[in-house]
Write a protein that binds this DNA or RNA. Structure first.
Lengths: 342, 342
DNA sequence: TTGTAAGCGTTATCAT
DNA sequence: ATGATAACGCTTACAA
C-alpha cells in the first residue's frame, strides 16, 4: 500500500510537503495541495495513523474500562462517550474488568503500553485503592471516573447523587400518601447502594416516619431468600404501603410478588425503582424510577477528558461533577393528581 | 519513560538481545534474561506496543462496528467478543454507525488507517452493498459479520435463524392450544424481521391454520397507532388466543394492552416475545421468548475472526454459521404441562 | 512555501 | 547466544 514516500516520488515533491498537505494544510500552495491529493487518490493512499502516533507521541485512542459492557448503565454511558469522542477524532478501546481488581490492573497496564491518550473508568466492586492507577499519572495520561468513583479529592469524576435520588423517590412516596415505606437494599459493600439506603432513611426521618427493623430488606445473593423476606414483610404489620427498590430489576421482582399476592399497585402499595431502565415505560403499570442519567454521565465524562487532553494553558482544576438524578414518575407510584412528569 | 535503548545501556547488552527477551525468549540465556528483566523492573520499563505494531506490521486491535451499543443484542455480543479476543491478546475498538451507511464507511476508513488486525460488524439498516468493505479485502483485513449480514456467499458470518425462531415459537403456541395466532411484525425493510414473519406464516400454514388480513399487525413508527391496531384486532372476531411479537418490547406493549383490557395471560391469550431480554424472567407472568443467543453469536464471531488471523496454512473456507435460536418457555405461553424448559 | 534529515521505539536481517 | 544496523511510516526542527 502506498505511503508518503510513494507520493513524494510520484509528485516530485518532498516527504515534508506531502506530510504538510495532510496536516498543516495551510502552509502549502493550493496548487501543490491539488497535485498531492490527486496523486493520493490515484495511488489510493491512506495515512498510517500508527506511524503518526508513534512519531508525534500522541495517539487518538481512549481506553474505557467498565465492569461489564452489557448492563444498561454502562452501555448507555459508553454510547454517548463514543459519540462525543469520535466527533473529536478519538476512538475508544473497550475493556471489561469483570469486577476484578486484578483484571483492572492488567487492563490499565495494557492501555499504557498501547499509549492511549486518556482513560475513562467505572471501577470494579472490588476496587478500593488507586494504586493500580498511579502509573497513569506517571505517564501523564488523564483519567476520568464515572458512575462509581473513589472518595479522593484529586480525581476527575462524573457521578450521580445516589443519596439525593433515593431521597427524592422516598419523598415522592410520602407525598403520595405512603406512611409505611420499605426499602429493598443493594449489596452493603457497594458505596452507591449504601448512599441510596442513607437517602431513604434520611427522608423517612425528615418526615418523622418510623423505621423499624425489617423495613430495610438486606441484599441476599439468593433471589429466593429475598423473595421470602419480602413476602414475610408484606404480610406483617404494619402493612407496607410503599416500596423503594435499589434497582429496577429488584422492583420488577417486587412487582411480581405483589402481583402474585393480588396486592394492587399503586393503590395498596406504591413502588419506585432505580435506574430508569428501558422497560420501565412498557410495563403495566409503568414503573416509576430514578433516572441515573446514563447518557448525560457518559457525555460529561467524555467532555471532561477532552478538556484534560487540551494543551493545558493554566493549571486545571479537578472537576468532581455530581449530577442530581431525575425521578421519572409513572403509574406504579401515582395515587394523586400530579403536576410534575416527563 | 524507559525504552529498550535504556535497558541496553543499563545492562551493557545490545538492543537486539533486549528485544529477544520480550519476544523469542527461548533464544536467550536464563541468566541474561534475569538481568534484563530486573533492569526492566528497576527502570519500570513498559514495551511500546505502538512501535512494535508499526515495525512488525501487525497490530493487536480489532474493530467492532455496531449500529448502536446500548441495545442488548449488541452489548451482549460485544461482551463475549471482548472476553474471547482479550484472552488472545487483542483489544477491541468500538464504533457506532447509528444505522448510517455513510458513517459506516467513514468508520471503516478510519479502522484501516488505524491498521486494525480485523473487523467484526453488524451492518446498519441502510446498508445493502459491500462497496465500502472492499478496502478491507484489499488491505487483507479479515472481516466477520454478525447478527445482521448480507446475502453474499464469500463472507464470514454468524447469525441466528430468525425464520426458525419464529417458526418454533409459533409451533409452540399451536401446541399450547392456540388456534388464532396473530403476529406483531417488525419493520418490513429489515431482513431479520421479514424472516420472522415468514417463519410465523409458514408455521400457521403447516398447521393448516387460517391467516386472515389483520392477523399480521404491520410495524408502524407511531406506538399509538400500533396499540390502536392491536386493540382493534383483539376486539374483532375470531378472537386471537395467541400472539407472536417480533421483539420483547413489542410483547411488553402487548402485555400492557392485554392487562388494561383485563384479558388474562396465558389463559385467554398466550404470548411469546423475541430476544429473551433480561427482564423477561422478572415479569409476572414471565415472558416466553426466543433467545437470539447473543453471547454465543459474539463468541463465535470472535473465534471465527481469530481463525482468520492465524497464519493461513491452507486456503480457508468461508464459514457461514447459522445458529438455531432457543425458545425460552415461561408462564406467558404455558397452558399445559410441559417437559421442555430451561 | 518547500526541502533536508533526524528520530519516535520497536523488529528483523545480517553477521559474529 | 549475542551484536550491529537498517527499516517501519510518519512528524518536525532547521535550513534554504
Amino acid at each position: 500500500m502506498a505511503n508518503m514516500k510513494d507520493l513524494a516520488k510520484a509528485t516530485g515533491l518532498s516527504l515534508a510537503t506531502i506530510s504538510r498537505v495532510f496536516n498543516d494544510s495551510d502552509k502549502v500552495t493550493a496548487q501543490t495541495r491539488e497535485i498531492v491529493l490527486s496523486a493520493a487518490e490515484k495511488l489510493s493512499y491512506r495515512p498510517n495513523k500508527m506511524a503518526a502516533a508513534l512519531r508525534s507521541g500522541r495517539s487518538n485512542s481512549i481506553g474505557v474500562i467498565v465492569p461489564v459492557i452489557d448492563r444498561e448503565v454502562f452501555s448507555s454511558a459508553i454510547k454517548s462517550m463514543e459519540e462525543v469522542l469520535s466527533a473529536s477524532g478519538y476512538n475508544i478501546i473497550i475493556c471489561q474488568s469483570h469486577e476484578s481488581y486484578q483484571r483492572e490492573q492488567e487492563i490499565i497496564e495494557n492501555l499504557v503500553q498501547l499509549k492511549v491518550a486518556g482513560v475513562i473508568i467505572s471501577i470494579s466492586k472490588e476496587t478500593n485503592t488507586t494504586d493500580h492507577l498511579a502509573v497513569l499519572e506517571k505517564e501523564n495520561i488523564p483519567l476520568v471516573f464515572f458512575d462509581r468513583s473513589l472518595e479522593l479529592g484529586k480525581l476527575n469524576s462524573v457521578v450521580i447523587n445516589n443519596y439525593n435520588g433515593a431521597y427524592q423517590a422516598t419523598q415522592h412516596l410520602v407525598d403520595q400518601g405512603c406512611r409505611q415505606i420499605i426499602h429493598l437494599a443493594g449489596k452493603e459493600k457497594v458505596p452507591i447502594f449504601r448512599e441510596r439506603r442513607r437517602g431513604f432513611e434520611d427522608a423517612l426521618r425528615r418526615n418523622k416516619l418510623a423505621l423499624e427493623d425489617g423495613d430495610v430488606i438486606a441484599f441476599d445473593e439468593s433471589q429466593a431468600n429475598r423473595v421470602a423476606q419480602l413476602t414475610a414483610r408484606l404480610a406483617a404489620e404494619p402493612r407496607p404501603d410503599g416500596i423503594l427498590a435499589h434497582g429496577d430489576i429488584s422492583a420488577l421482582v417486587a412487582l411480581r410478588v405483589l402481583n402474585e399476592k393480588g396486592i394492587r399497585v399503586p393503590a395498596e402499595v406504591a413502588i419506585v425503582g432505580f435506574g430508569d431502565s428501558l422497560f420501565c415505560t412498557y410495563l403495566e403499570p409503568g414503573l416509576s424510577s430514578v433516572s441515573q442519567r446514563n447518557e448525560d454521565v457518559g457525555r460529561l465524562a467524555a467532555s471532561l477528558l477532552l478538556e484534560e487532553l487540551q494543551p493545558q494553558e493554566a493549571d486545571r482544576v479537578v472537576a468532581h461533577q455530581v449530577l442530581p438524578p431525575v425521578l421519572k414518575i409513572r403509574k406504579s407510584s401515582l395515587r394523586r393528581p400530579q403536576t410534575t412528569d416527563e
